[in-house]
Simulated scan of single mutants.
Amino acid sequence: MDLPRNFTVRESGHRVHNPFTEEDLATLGRALRLAPGSRILDLACGSGELLCTWARDHGTTGTGVDISTVFLAAARERAAELGVADRVGFVHGDASGHVAGAPVDVAACVGATWIGGGVAGTVELLERSVRPGGLLLVGEPYWRREPPDLTTVEACHATARDDYFALPELLEHFGGLGWDVVEMVLADQRGWDRYVAAQWLNIRRWLDANPGDELAGELRAELTEGPARHVRYQREYLGWGVFALMRRRPPGHG
């Protein structure tokens, strides 16, 4: 059980595996005003940057779950580098079925809602781990501009326009699921560049070192076509953000 190699080649130099910059991640951590000792579960945690830097900066603790052995090795190295290995731990496993053994203060899935079959299923999965009054963190793309055609939709890694919401629709969807949106930090086009453009250098260096690898043809085509596709479509049409949610109380309970 692991990620396909093309993912780890593309993102081999990444600490954050989505369009969030390290500054965005730090902004979100400050905005949530987490108490020292707060417990976090991060599903599909990637290289663990959220858990590791928040443990360093805010005194939180937590567990990350991911299918990638490569990313988890990087997460453990990062925890040791930042001196927080005693406060965060990482589990190799399928995040889609993972529920915390005891309720946590924050349950997060930042950019991998496919683990729950979409936003609604992921919110339901996260709720199974969070304490009453705790926070969910959901990272999700949205349409920043209405896509004009199927070519644009597919270039943004979707199969249909309705695979993503527009931003107002996404916030309304959270409300329809019974959750208040209590914070959000949105990526910008610079964040997309730092995520996607950084992959090009990873791919090029890997191709130079591995010209005969079975993945070389696929990744060569990706590097040839990807930069123009990124600036023409994804950079212009697709937004991305992390949304903090709290379960709404029944009428008469605040």
Rank of each mutant, 00 (worst) to 15 (best):
V231L: 05
L207Y: 08
V104I: 10
R161D: 10
R30Q: 14
Q234M: 07
R229A: 09
Y195H: 08
L50S: 07
G133T: 15
S129N: 10
A44M: 02
D149K: 04
E154W: 05
Y195A: 10
E22N: 12
T151W: 07
D188Q: 05
D66F: 03
L72I: 05
P103K: 08
E154S: 09
L126H: 03
L72F: 09
I67W: 01
A112D: 14
L150E: 12
A100I: 00
D24V: 09
T53A: 03
D66M: 02
P147C: 01
G48T: 00
R232D: 11
L82A: 09
L219Q: 14
I115E: 01
A107F: 11
R249C: 04
C52S: 03
G134E: 06
G212L: 11
T122H: 08
P132A: 08
P4F: 07
A95Y: 03
G83Y: 13
A55F: 00
E222Q: 15
A216F: 13
V130I: 08
G37L: 10
I115N: 06
T151L: 13
W143T: 02
L3Y: 14
L223D: 04
P132S: 00
V242Q: 03
N210V: 03
T69W: 09
R232M: 05
W240R: 12
R39H: 04
T61H: 02
W206G: 00
T69Y: 04
R30F: 13
H230A: 07
R78G: 01
M1K: 09
R190M: 13
T224R: 14
A197N: 14
G97F: 00
R232V: 05
A228L: 13
G191W: 15
G89C: 15
A85V: 01
A155Y: 01
Q234R: 15
A244L: 10
D162W: 14
T63L: 08
V130T: 06
H92D: 04
P211V: 07
A44R: 03
A166G: 12
M1I: 12
G121Y: 07
L50A: 02
L137E: 10
E127P: 05
N6C: 13
G83C: 13
Y195G: 03
V138R: 07
Q189C: 11
A187G: 08
A216T: 11
R131W: 13
V231M: 06
T113Q: 10
I67M: 09
L170T: 00
C45W: 00
H173A: 15
Y195R: 02
E218D: 14
R10C: 13
D213S: 11
R15T: 06
V119I: 06
L51P: 00
E183I: 03
L245E: 12
D105P: 12
D24P: 05
V65L: 02
G62N: 02
A100V: 03
T159R: 10
V65Y: 11
T113K: 02
L135C: 13
L170F: 00
W200F: 15
R161H: 07
G29V: 03
A216K: 12
W54T: 14
T224D: 12
L137N: 09
V65D: 02
R248D: 05
R39L: 03
L177Q: 06
T21V: 06
Q234S: 10
F7T: 09
V110M: 10
A198N: 05
A120R: 09
V182R: 03
P168W: 12
Q234D: 04
A155V: 01
T63V: 12
V16N: 07
R39P: 00
V119P: 02
P141A: 12
L136T: 08
H92A: 10
P211Y: 04
